[in-house]
Amino acid sequence: MGRYVARRLLLTIPVLIGASFLIFAMVYALPGDPIRALAGDRPLSAAVQAQLRAEYNLDDPLWLQYIKYVGDLVQGDFGTDFSGRDVSETIFQRLPVTAKLALAAVIFEAVIGLVAGILAGIRRGSFFDNLVLISTTLIVSIPVFVLGFVAQFAFGLKLGLFPTSGIGDGWYSYVLPGLVLASLSLAYVARLTRTSLAENLRQDYVRTARAKGLKPSVVIGKHTLRNSMIPVVTFIGADIGALMGGAIVTESIFNIPGLGRAVYDAVLRQEGAVVVGIVTLFVFFYIFFNLLVDVLYALLDPRIRYD
């Protein structure tokens, strides 16, 4: 097990480096002169410009800039934005917001997705099963930003149940955005649970359990669910990382000051350091949760051992 984890950790290093270089190279190619943008309306003297260029390594070739950036990064220095503020400060300020949003989404995803999937999977072909099938198909067909408007319009404006923007109301303001962010994954979880449960219910051990007279609740709750949950749990776990990176749309619609919103603003303002820092963090989370899930996989399923 330890050796497996070590090997996986080693394998993530080139991926992390490659992904951050990819982002760095794209941002490096952002149009416009960052120094000019920094200066604003008042033109800077040539000497000041040269000094700033040297300070931000702007005259170095791409690869050298990247190496210097990573050198700073491993020491915890994410660089500064145009106003001289540390990018790490922005990250520390906004990470909790995005984390709360992702957590709310994962809770919705797990609870609603699992319940719907289990109820549908127990009785395939029933009315409820078809309802779940049709509604999940509809949910994945509606783009997230459209779903965001529908939710804002219906629950926020018409019914007045939830706040439609900002995070002024504490946890309560995360309900609607969390639900919207979770919608796509929720549909996957419901479908995955349904398929997995229905497949397991056909297994011999389930017939045996029934034949020896166990109550249906025990057959499903104790025997079948445990086996059916393995793919679902791994999906949900790995999805945490994806949800954080996917928050850019939800945070824009609901005006939530999280990391996704920060990337959105930074791309439009062409603040390279902020974009690279936060997106690299997203990639890191994505890889981290995937790794965590792979390890969890072995713990959950005794049939799988990586040694």
């Binding site: 080139p14 991926v15 990819l22 982002i23 974009v275 997203f282 890889i287």
Partner: peptide, 24 residues
Amino acid sequence: ARITDIFYGLPLILGAFILLAVLP
């Protein structure tokens, strides 16, 4: 496979968003 992993780390919308910001 590693190259594929690298691209997988970036969500579709986020990656395309940054790339499009770069294109004139």
